[in-house]
Design a protein around this nucleic acid. Sequence first.
DNA 1: CCGTATCCTCCTCGATACTG
DNA 2: CAGTATCGAGGAGGATACGG
Lengths: 129, 129
Amino acid sequence: MGTKQLGGSVDQADVTRADSLAREIFSDIANKWALLIIEAIGDNTLRFSELRDEVDGISHKMLTQNLRMLERNGLIERTVHPTVPPRVEYTLTEPGRALRVTIDGMCDWTHRYIGHIEQARDSFQARKQ
Amino acid sequence: MGTKQLGGSVDQADVTRADSLAREIFSDIANKWALLIIEAIGDNTLRFSELRDEVDGISHKMLTQNLRMLERNGLIERTVHPTVPPRVEYTLTEPGRALRVTIDGMCDWTHRYIGHIEQARDSFQARKQ
DNA sequence: CCGTATCCTCCTCGATACTG
DNA sequence: CAGTATCGAGGAGGATACGG
């Protein structure tokens, strides 16, 4: 992450602080559940239970945990409808939608290279007998 | 991931198999160490020890483990120079370089929204007292 | 329905030491 | 220098139960 310094008038302490913050954010975001949740929300407004169905294999706990994290970082917005039973909906914020674009890129990449990868795995397997 | 089906002549079994493979690949790739390693290599040819220095905070074990995984999936190429002491170099393959582009996108995103995120964290903190 | 808390398991990850 | 193996601690993550 320590790429692209912004030389000039910026205090060195601020730079390193920003860098460590950037690493922290990157570590938060760069995990499969977070990325899959963002993909799942996309342009939609989804309820907790809908997300649970949409993101397959995710547990109740992982979902809440990642939703909190994403809310904390301002990537999603959480709106509670004070009805009974409660209705909680999640949407992407503008930063969230921006990140989504790059995640879309990763998904496209996966589909584009899935053949390459399968071959690579076979040849790797063969190399190691 | 289960988006974008390719309808038509494709056998359903193949579709689900490809989908589960895609998820598996995504889970492999979408972790911070893998992404940081790919970023670190970039256009360079780096030795093991150089990578260890470049990707800060990574342990010896995590590095080897992720390098194997990336090699297995054909994202990096590993070349051993049979000298003594041994010299092992890593570069990105074409799929690796393609993925790198999207990772660059994530890094850019982080830098662009770091301010938003900091604010979001503060306001989140405040909301929860 | 949604969220939190508790418990318990497993496996990730770091430290260390050893081979080629 | 690069890689593997081993071991132990700690956190991740699942299951369950309960509260609002």
